[in-house]
Simulated scan of single mutants.
Amino acid sequence: MGIKWHQRRKLLTSAFHFNILKQFSHTIIEQTEGLLGFVQAELGSPRTDLVPIITKATLRIMCETSMGTSLREGTESKKYFSALHTIGYCIVNRMIRPWLYPDGIFYLSAFWRMEKSALKYLHNFTNQVIQERKFCKATNEKVNDGSEVHGQKKKQAFLDLLLVNERDNKIDENGIREEVDTFMFEGHDTTAMALCFMIMRIANESIVQNSILEELQRIFGNDSHRQVTFEDLCEMKYLECCIKESLRLYPSVPFIARHINEDVTLGGYRVPAGTICQINVFDIHRDEAVYPDPERFMPERFLNGKRHPYAYIPFSAGPRNCIGMKFAMMELKVVMCGLLRRFRLEPVTRPADVRFTGDLVLRAAHPLYVRFVSRDSSSSDC
Results as ranks from 00 to 15, higher is better:
166 E>W: 02
165 N>W: 08
177 R>H: 05
147 S>W: 08
190 T>A: 15
154 K>C: 03
188 H>T: 14
167 R>T: 11
181 D>C: 00
187 G>F: 14
142 K>F: 08
196 C>F: 08
167 R>W: 02
201 R>L: 15
147 S>H: 11
201 R>A: 10
178 E>V: 04
189 D>Q: 07
191 T>L: 13
189 D>C: 03
215 E>S: 00
182 T>N: 12
207 I>T: 09
197 F>S: 12
202 I>E: 02
178 E>S: 08
171 I>N: 05
149 V>R: 11
171 I>P: 09
149 V>Y: 14
157 A>R: 06
172 D>G: 06
164 V>N: 11
181 D>W: 01
214 E>Q: 13
189 D>V: 04
156 Q>Y: 05
164 V>P: 01
151 G>E: 09
200 M>S: 08
195 L>D: 14
162 L>R: 05
208 V>Q: 04
180 V>D: 08
187 G>Y: 12
144 N>R: 06
180 V>H: 05
193 M>H: 13
182 T>H: 07
180 V>I: 15
192 A>E: 04
161 L>V: 14
179 E>Q: 14
190 T>Q: 10
186 E>L: 10
211 S>C: 05
201 R>P: 02
178 E>D: 15
183 F>H: 07
178 E>G: 04
158 F>S: 09
172 D>K: 08
163 L>D: 04
181 D>G: 04
156 Q>G: 00
185 F>Y: 06
201 R>W: 10
170 K>S: 07
172 D>R: 04
170 K>W: 03
171 I>E: 03
162 L>W: 06
182 T>L: 12
175 G>P: 01
183 F>M: 15
174 N>H: 09
199 I>C: 09
177 R>E: 04
154 K>M: 13
